[in-house]
Amino acid sequence: MEHALTLSAGCNKWDIRQKVWDYMEHNNLADFPRPVHHRIPNFKGAARACERLTTVQEFQSAETVKINPDAPQKKARFLTLDARKTLLVPTPRLRTGLFNRITPPPGAGKEVLRICSTSQGVKDFSVPLGLDAAVRVDLVVVGSVAVSEKGWRIGKGEGFADMEYAMMVAMGAVTDETVVVTVVHDCQVLNIPEELLEDYDLTVDYILTPTRVIKTGCTRPKPRGIIWSKISRDVMDKIPILKKLQDRERRDGKDVTLKNECDAPTRQTGGSTAAAHRSAQNIKSKPGSTDQKDVTTVYVGNIPPATRVSEFKGVLRERGATPLHLTWQGAQYRAFLDYADPCQAEAVVSSLEGLNLGGQVIRVELARTQRSGRQVFGDRKDSLTPTDK
Protein backbone atom coordinates (compact mmCIF):
# COMPACT_ATOMS: atom_id res chain seq x y z
CA MET A 1 0.00 0.00 0.00
CA GLU A 2 1.33 3.43 -0.92
CA HIS A 3 2.12 5.61 2.09
CA ALA A 4 0.59 9.07 2.48
CA LEU A 5 3.91 10.50 3.65
CA THR A 6 7.44 10.01 2.36
CA LEU A 7 10.56 10.70 4.37
CA SER A 8 13.63 12.54 3.20
CA ALA A 9 17.10 11.01 3.41
CA GLY A 10 18.91 11.71 6.66
CA CYS A 11 15.73 12.44 8.65
CA ASN A 12 15.69 11.80 12.39
CA LYS A 13 12.92 10.84 14.77
CA TRP A 14 11.98 14.41 15.48
CA ASP A 15 11.71 15.20 11.75
CA ILE A 16 9.32 12.26 11.38
CA ARG A 17 7.17 13.34 14.31
CA GLN A 18 6.94 16.87 12.98
CA LYS A 19 6.00 15.64 9.51
CA VAL A 20 3.20 13.45 10.86
CA TRP A 21 1.83 16.12 13.20
CA ASP A 22 1.89 18.79 10.49
CA TYR A 23 0.19 16.49 7.98
CA MET A 24 -2.58 15.52 10.38
CA GLU A 25 -3.24 19.13 11.32
CA HIS A 26 -3.15 20.37 7.72
CA ASN A 27 -5.56 17.65 6.59
CA ASN A 28 -7.85 17.87 9.64
CA LEU A 29 -7.34 14.21 10.53
CA ALA A 30 -7.45 14.64 14.29
CA ASP A 31 -10.10 15.04 16.97
CA PHE A 32 -9.76 16.79 20.33
CA PRO A 33 -7.26 17.56 21.82
CA ARG A 34 -5.77 19.82 19.16
CA PRO A 35 -3.22 20.67 17.96
CA VAL A 36 -1.75 17.18 17.84
CA HIS A 37 1.85 18.38 18.11
CA HIS A 38 3.72 16.74 21.01
CA ARG A 39 0.88 14.26 21.55
CA ILE A 40 -0.12 10.74 20.60
CA PRO A 41 -2.66 11.93 17.99
CA ASN A 42 -6.32 11.29 18.71
CA PHE A 43 -7.07 10.61 15.07
CA LYS A 44 -10.43 10.45 13.32
CA GLY A 45 -11.44 6.81 12.97
CA ALA A 46 -9.63 5.72 16.15
CA ALA A 47 -12.68 3.80 17.43
CA ARG A 48 -12.93 1.92 14.12
CA ALA A 49 -9.24 1.04 14.29
CA CYS A 50 -9.62 -0.18 17.88
CA GLU A 51 -12.52 -2.43 16.89
CA ARG A 52 -10.07 -4.42 14.77
CA LEU A 53 -8.41 -5.52 18.03
CA THR A 54 -11.19 -8.10 18.47
CA THR A 55 -10.06 -9.82 15.24
CA VAL A 56 -6.53 -10.39 16.56
CA GLN A 57 -6.27 -13.97 17.81
CA GLU A 58 -3.80 -13.03 20.56
CA PHE A 59 -6.32 -10.55 21.97
CA GLN A 60 -9.09 -13.13 21.89
CA SER A 61 -7.01 -15.53 23.98
CA ALA A 62 -5.49 -12.89 26.28
CA GLU A 63 -6.53 -12.74 29.93
CA THR A 64 -4.65 -9.57 30.93
CA VAL A 65 -4.19 -6.59 28.61
CA LYS A 66 -2.19 -3.45 29.29
CA ILE A 67 -3.36 -0.36 27.33
CA ASN A 68 -2.04 3.18 27.35
CA PRO A 69 -4.38 5.89 28.70
CA ASP A 70 -4.28 8.00 25.52
CA ALA A 71 -7.55 9.13 23.93
CA PRO A 72 -7.25 7.09 20.69
CA GLN A 73 -7.06 3.86 22.74
CA LYS A 74 -10.32 4.53 24.64
CA LYS A 75 -12.36 2.07 22.55
CA ALA A 76 -9.67 -0.58 23.03
CA ARG A 77 -9.98 -0.18 26.79
CA PHE A 78 -13.76 -0.55 26.56
CA LEU A 79 -13.50 -3.67 24.39
CA THR A 80 -11.09 -5.21 26.89
CA LEU A 81 -13.44 -4.59 29.81
CA ASP A 82 -16.48 -5.69 27.80
CA ALA A 83 -14.71 -8.99 27.04
CA ARG A 84 -14.28 -9.40 30.83
CA LYS A 85 -10.50 -9.33 30.57
CA THR A 86 -8.21 -7.75 33.18
CA LEU A 87 -7.28 -4.23 32.07
CA LEU A 88 -4.08 -2.55 33.24
CA VAL A 89 -3.40 1.13 32.55
CA PRO A 90 -0.06 2.83 33.32
CA THR A 91 -0.12 5.64 35.84
CA PRO A 92 0.30 9.09 34.21
CA ARG A 93 4.00 9.74 33.57
CA LEU A 94 4.79 6.90 36.02
CA ARG A 95 4.72 9.39 38.91
CA THR A 96 3.12 7.13 41.52
CA GLY A 97 3.81 3.64 40.23
CA LEU A 98 3.82 1.45 37.15
CA PHE A 99 0.16 0.69 36.44
CA ASN A 100 -3.33 0.39 37.85
CA ARG A 101 -5.87 -2.41 37.43
CA ILE A 102 -9.27 -1.16 36.34
CA THR A 103 -11.97 -2.67 38.56
CA PRO A 104 -15.51 -1.95 37.32
CA PRO A 105 -18.28 -2.21 39.91
CA PRO A 106 -19.98 -5.64 40.14
CA GLY A 107 -22.55 -6.20 37.42
CA ALA A 108 -21.40 -3.17 35.42
CA GLY A 109 -23.17 -2.82 32.09
CA LYS A 110 -21.78 -1.39 28.87
CA GLU A 111 -22.47 2.23 29.80
CA VAL A 112 -20.55 1.88 33.07
CA LEU A 113 -17.74 0.10 31.27
CA ARG A 114 -17.54 2.99 28.79
CA ILE A 115 -17.11 5.34 31.74
CA CYS A 116 -14.42 3.07 33.20
CA SER A 117 -12.52 3.23 29.91
CA THR A 118 -12.25 7.05 29.99
CA SER A 119 -9.44 8.95 31.69
CA GLN A 120 -11.78 9.89 34.53
CA GLY A 121 -12.95 6.32 34.84
CA VAL A 122 -9.37 5.16 35.11
CA LYS A 123 -8.99 7.49 38.11
CA ASP A 124 -12.27 6.44 39.75
CA PHE A 125 -12.26 2.68 39.17
CA SER A 126 -8.67 1.52 39.54
CA VAL A 127 -6.39 -0.15 42.07
CA PRO A 128 -2.61 0.51 42.02
CA LEU A 129 -0.27 -2.44 41.55
CA GLY A 130 3.27 -2.46 42.92
CA LEU A 131 6.48 -3.95 41.56
CA ASP A 132 5.93 -7.09 43.59
CA ALA A 133 2.48 -7.77 42.16
CA ALA A 134 2.23 -11.17 40.50
CA VAL A 135 1.11 -9.95 37.08
CA ARG A 136 1.38 -11.64 33.70
CA VAL A 137 0.52 -9.37 30.75
CA ASP A 138 -0.56 -11.25 27.64
CA LEU A 139 -0.95 -8.30 25.26
CA VAL A 140 0.15 -4.64 25.26
CA VAL A 141 -1.55 -1.82 23.33
CA VAL A 142 0.45 1.39 22.84
CA GLY A 143 -0.04 4.63 20.97
CA SER A 144 2.40 5.89 18.35
CA VAL A 145 3.19 8.99 16.36
CA ALA A 146 4.62 6.93 13.51
CA VAL A 147 5.14 3.25 12.82
CA SER A 148 6.47 1.14 9.96
CA GLU A 149 5.04 -2.06 8.52
CA LYS A 150 8.23 -3.76 9.75
CA GLY A 151 7.28 -2.92 13.32
CA TRP A 152 9.53 0.06 14.02
CA ARG A 153 7.75 2.52 16.30
CA ILE A 154 8.22 6.21 17.15
CA GLY A 155 6.38 7.73 20.10
CA LYS A 156 6.01 11.36 21.06
CA GLY A 157 9.57 11.56 22.35
CA GLU A 158 9.27 11.23 26.12
CA GLY A 159 10.05 7.50 26.22
CA PHE A 160 7.31 6.40 28.62
CA ALA A 161 6.03 3.48 26.51
CA ASP A 162 9.58 2.14 26.17
CA MET A 163 10.18 2.68 29.90
CA GLU A 164 6.92 0.99 30.89
CA TYR A 165 7.72 -2.08 28.82
CA ALA A 166 11.28 -2.29 30.17
CA MET A 167 9.93 -2.07 33.72
CA MET A 168 7.42 -4.83 33.00
CA VAL A 169 10.30 -6.99 31.76
CA ALA A 170 12.21 -6.28 34.96
CA MET A 171 9.24 -7.33 37.14
CA GLY A 172 8.55 -10.44 35.05
CA ALA A 173 5.19 -9.23 33.76
CA VAL A 174 6.05 -9.71 30.06
CA THR A 175 8.13 -12.19 28.10
CA ASP A 176 9.41 -12.56 24.55
CA GLU A 177 6.00 -14.02 23.72
CA THR A 178 4.02 -10.95 24.80
CA VAL A 179 2.34 -9.33 21.78
CA VAL A 180 2.52 -5.55 21.29
CA VAL A 181 -0.16 -3.75 19.26
CA THR A 182 -0.37 -0.12 18.19
CA VAL A 183 -3.42 1.79 16.95
CA VAL A 184 -2.81 4.57 14.40
CA HIS A 185 -4.26 6.43 11.42
CA ASP A 186 -3.23 5.10 8.02
CA CYS A 187 -1.14 8.23 7.40
CA GLN A 188 1.00 7.37 10.43
CA VAL A 189 2.32 4.22 8.73
CA LEU A 190 5.66 5.18 7.14
CA ASN A 191 8.91 3.65 5.92
CA ILE A 192 10.96 4.39 9.04
CA PRO A 193 14.70 3.69 8.66
CA GLU A 194 15.80 0.93 11.04
CA GLU A 195 19.02 2.79 11.83
CA LEU A 196 16.98 5.31 13.85
CA LEU A 197 16.05 2.63 16.39
CA GLU A 198 17.87 2.27 19.72
CA ASP A 199 18.15 -0.79 21.95
CA TYR A 200 15.51 0.63 24.28
CA ASP A 201 12.93 1.30 21.52
CA LEU A 202 9.77 -0.79 21.69
CA THR A 203 8.72 -2.54 18.47
CA VAL A 204 5.21 -3.73 17.58
CA ASP A 205 3.73 -6.98 16.29
CA TYR A 206 0.42 -5.61 14.99
CA ILE A 207 -0.66 -2.26 13.56
CA LEU A 208 -4.38 -1.47 13.59
CA THR A 209 -5.68 1.34 11.37
CA PRO A 210 -9.22 2.33 10.36
CA THR A 211 -8.79 0.31 7.15
CA ARG A 212 -6.58 -2.68 7.91
CA VAL A 213 -4.73 -4.97 10.28
CA ILE A 214 -0.98 -5.24 9.65
CA LYS A 215 0.96 -8.16 11.11
CA THR A 216 4.54 -6.89 11.09
CA GLY A 217 6.40 -10.15 11.60
CA CYS A 218 8.97 -8.09 13.50
CA THR A 219 11.96 -10.13 14.73
CA ARG A 220 13.93 -7.29 16.28
CA PRO A 221 14.25 -7.96 20.04
CA LYS A 222 12.14 -5.85 22.35
CA PRO A 223 13.73 -4.13 25.37
CA ARG A 224 15.24 -6.67 27.77
CA GLY A 225 14.82 -4.47 30.82
CA ILE A 226 16.00 -1.10 32.12
CA ILE A 227 19.29 0.06 30.60
CA TRP A 228 20.51 1.89 33.69
CA SER A 229 23.49 3.44 31.93
CA LYS A 230 21.04 5.48 29.84
CA ILE A 231 19.03 6.74 32.85
CA SER A 232 19.96 10.09 34.38
CA ARG A 233 19.58 11.10 38.00
CA ASP A 234 17.01 13.65 36.84
CA VAL A 235 14.82 10.88 35.42
CA MET A 236 15.22 8.88 38.62
CA ASP A 237 14.02 11.86 40.63
CA LYS A 238 10.94 12.23 38.45
CA ILE A 239 9.97 8.54 38.45
CA PRO A 240 10.23 7.28 42.07
CA ILE A 241 9.33 3.70 41.15
CA LEU A 242 12.63 3.48 39.27
CA LYS A 243 14.48 3.81 42.57
CA LYS A 244 12.64 0.80 43.98
CA LEU A 245 13.43 -1.19 40.87
CA GLN A 246 17.08 -0.10 40.97
CA ASP A 247 17.38 -1.22 44.61
CA ARG A 248 15.87 -4.58 43.77
CA GLU A 249 18.17 -5.19 40.81
CA ARG A 250 21.19 -4.04 42.86
CA ARG A 251 20.34 -6.70 45.45
CA ASP A 252 20.23 -9.23 42.61
CA GLY A 253 23.81 -8.32 41.73
CA LYS A 254 23.09 -6.35 38.56
CA ASP A 255 25.02 -3.27 37.46
CA VAL A 256 22.64 -0.38 38.07
CA THR A 257 25.10 2.49 37.60
CA LEU A 258 23.35 5.52 36.14
CA LYS A 259 24.59 7.60 33.24
CA ASN A 260 27.76 9.48 34.28
CA GLU A 261 26.94 8.74 37.93
CA CYS A 262 30.49 7.92 38.88
CA ASP A 263 32.15 11.10 37.63
CA ALA A 264 29.57 13.73 38.65
CA PRO A 265 31.39 16.34 40.80
CA THR A 266 29.72 18.50 43.43
CA ARG A 267 29.66 22.21 44.08
CA GLN A 268 28.73 24.63 46.82
CA THR A 269 25.54 26.62 46.18
CA GLY A 270 24.32 29.06 48.80
CA GLY A 271 25.99 27.09 51.59
CA SER A 272 24.71 23.68 50.50
CA THR A 273 26.21 20.94 48.36
CA ALA A 274 24.58 20.28 44.98
CA ALA A 275 25.37 18.35 41.83
CA ALA A 276 27.47 20.56 39.60
CA HIS A 277 27.42 18.59 36.44
CA ARG A 278 24.93 15.95 35.44
CA SER A 279 24.80 13.67 32.45
CA ALA A 280 24.08 14.90 28.95
CA GLN A 281 20.57 13.48 29.34
CA ASN A 282 19.92 15.55 32.48
CA ILE A 283 18.37 18.94 31.73
CA LYS A 284 17.67 21.32 34.60
CA SER A 285 14.51 23.38 34.44
CA LYS A 286 15.56 26.11 36.87
CA PRO A 287 18.33 28.69 36.63
CA GLY A 288 21.57 27.85 38.36
CA SER A 289 23.19 30.21 40.83
CA THR A 290 26.89 29.57 40.49
CA ASP A 291 29.71 31.00 38.47
CA GLN A 292 29.14 30.08 34.81
CA LYS A 293 32.38 31.40 33.30
CA ASP A 294 33.02 28.32 31.21
CA VAL A 295 29.68 27.92 29.47
CA THR A 296 28.35 29.28 26.20
CA THR A 297 24.64 30.03 26.08
CA VAL A 298 22.18 29.58 23.22
CA TYR A 299 18.99 31.63 23.11
CA VAL A 300 15.81 29.96 21.81
CA GLY A 301 12.79 32.19 21.16
CA ASN A 302 9.37 32.11 19.53
CA ILE A 303 8.50 28.93 21.42
CA PRO A 304 4.75 28.21 21.05
CA PRO A 305 2.76 28.99 24.24
CA ALA A 306 1.38 25.44 24.50
CA THR A 307 4.84 23.84 24.55
CA ARG A 308 5.71 22.08 27.80
CA VAL A 309 9.26 21.99 29.09
CA SER A 310 9.25 18.17 29.02
CA GLU A 311 8.36 18.27 25.32
CA PHE A 312 11.09 20.80 24.66
CA LYS A 313 13.62 18.57 26.40
CA GLY A 314 12.58 15.69 24.18
CA VAL A 315 13.17 17.83 21.10
CA LEU A 316 16.66 18.71 22.32
CA ARG A 317 17.51 15.06 22.96
CA GLU A 318 16.35 14.06 19.49
CA ARG A 319 18.50 16.79 17.91
CA GLY A 320 21.56 15.86 19.94
CA ALA A 321 21.35 19.28 21.59
CA THR A 322 21.01 18.37 25.27
CA PRO A 323 22.56 21.21 27.35
CA LEU A 324 24.38 21.22 30.66
CA HIS A 325 21.64 23.46 32.02
CA LEU A 326 18.33 24.74 30.72
CA THR A 327 16.60 27.92 31.87
CA TRP A 328 12.95 27.72 30.87
CA GLN A 329 10.90 30.90 30.47
CA GLY A 330 7.76 29.53 28.86
CA ALA A 331 5.70 32.58 29.75
CA GLN A 332 8.09 34.65 27.63
CA TYR A 333 8.15 31.94 24.91
CA ARG A 334 11.91 31.43 25.30
CA ALA A 335 14.63 29.29 26.85
CA PHE A 336 18.37 29.55 27.44
CA LEU A 337 20.64 26.53 26.88
CA ASP A 338 24.15 26.31 28.38
CA TYR A 339 26.93 24.31 26.72
CA ALA A 340 30.47 23.48 27.74
CA ASP A 341 32.21 25.26 24.87
CA PRO A 342 31.51 27.64 21.95
CA CYS A 343 31.97 24.96 19.28
CA GLN A 344 29.26 22.79 20.80
CA ALA A 345 26.92 25.77 21.16
CA GLU A 346 27.44 26.78 17.52
CA ALA A 347 26.73 23.22 16.41
CA VAL A 348 23.48 23.32 18.39
CA VAL A 349 22.46 26.57 16.69
CA SER A 350 22.96 24.87 13.32
CA SER A 351 21.06 21.77 14.47
CA LEU A 352 18.04 23.72 15.73
CA GLU A 353 17.92 26.30 12.96
CA GLY A 354 14.61 26.18 11.11
CA LEU A 355 13.02 23.83 13.66
CA ASN A 356 9.22 23.97 13.59
CA LEU A 357 7.39 23.53 16.89
CA GLY A 358 3.61 23.46 16.87
CA GLY A 359 3.46 25.26 13.53
CA GLN A 360 5.97 27.94 14.54
CA VAL A 361 9.60 28.20 13.44
CA ILE A 362 11.64 28.85 16.55
CA ARG A 363 14.34 31.49 16.73
CA VAL A 364 17.76 30.23 17.78
CA GLU A 365 21.11 32.00 18.13
CA LEU A 366 24.04 32.48 20.44
CA ALA A 367 23.22 34.70 23.40
CA ARG A 368 25.65 37.47 24.29
CA THR A 369 26.94 38.47 27.68
CA GLN A 370 26.01 41.95 28.82
CA ARG A 371 28.01 41.77 32.01
CA SER A 372 31.73 41.66 31.37
CA GLY A 373 33.43 38.33 31.98
CA ARG A 374 30.44 36.54 33.47
CA GLN A 375 27.02 35.22 32.53
CA VAL A 376 24.57 35.71 35.39
CA PHE A 377 21.69 33.26 35.87
CA GLY A 378 19.25 35.16 38.02
CA ASP A 379 17.04 37.47 35.99
CA ARG A 380 17.82 36.63 32.37
CA LYS A 381 16.38 39.92 31.18
CA ASP A 382 19.38 41.60 32.81
CA SER A 383 22.05 39.15 31.85
CA LEU A 384 21.51 37.31 28.59
CA THR A 385 19.64 38.55 25.56
CA PRO A 386 19.58 37.68 21.87
CA THR A 387 22.35 39.34 19.93
CA ASP A 388 20.07 41.68 18.04
CA LYS A 389 17.76 42.62 20.87
Rank of each mutant, 00 (worst) to 15 (best):
8 S>K: 14
8 S>C: 06
9 A>S: 13
16 I>L: 06
20 V>P: 01
20 V>T: 05
38 H>F: 13
39 R>K: 15
54 T>I: 15
57 Q>W: 11
59 F>L: 10
60 Q>T: 14
73 Q>C: 14
78 F>Q: 04
82 D>V: 02
98 L>C: 11
104 P>Q: 09
106 P>D: 08
106 P>V: 07
125 F>R: 04
126 S>C: 09
131 L>G: 13
137 V>G: 01
143 G>K: 06
143 G>A: 10
146 A>C: 08
148 S>F: 05
151 G>R: 04
160 F>P: 01
167 M>C: 14
170 A>E: 14
176 D>L: 12
176 D>W: 07
182 T>I: 09
185 H>V: 02
191 N>T: 12
196 L>P: 04
206 Y>C: 13
211 T>C: 10
214 I>H: 03
216 T>I: 03
228 W>S: 08
235 V>R: 13
242 L>I: 04
248 R>M: 12
250 R>P: 01
256 V>Y: 06
261 E>Y: 10
267 R>D: 01
272 S>Q: 10
279 S>G: 15
282 N>S: 15
284 K>Y: 13
292 Q>T: 12
297 T>A: 14
307 T>K: 05
310 S>G: 08
311 E>W: 07
317 R>A: 14
332 Q>G: 00
340 A>G: 07
342 P>Q: 08
347 A>G: 15
350 S>F: 00
362 I>S: 02
368 R>H: 12
381 K>R: 15
384 L>K: 03
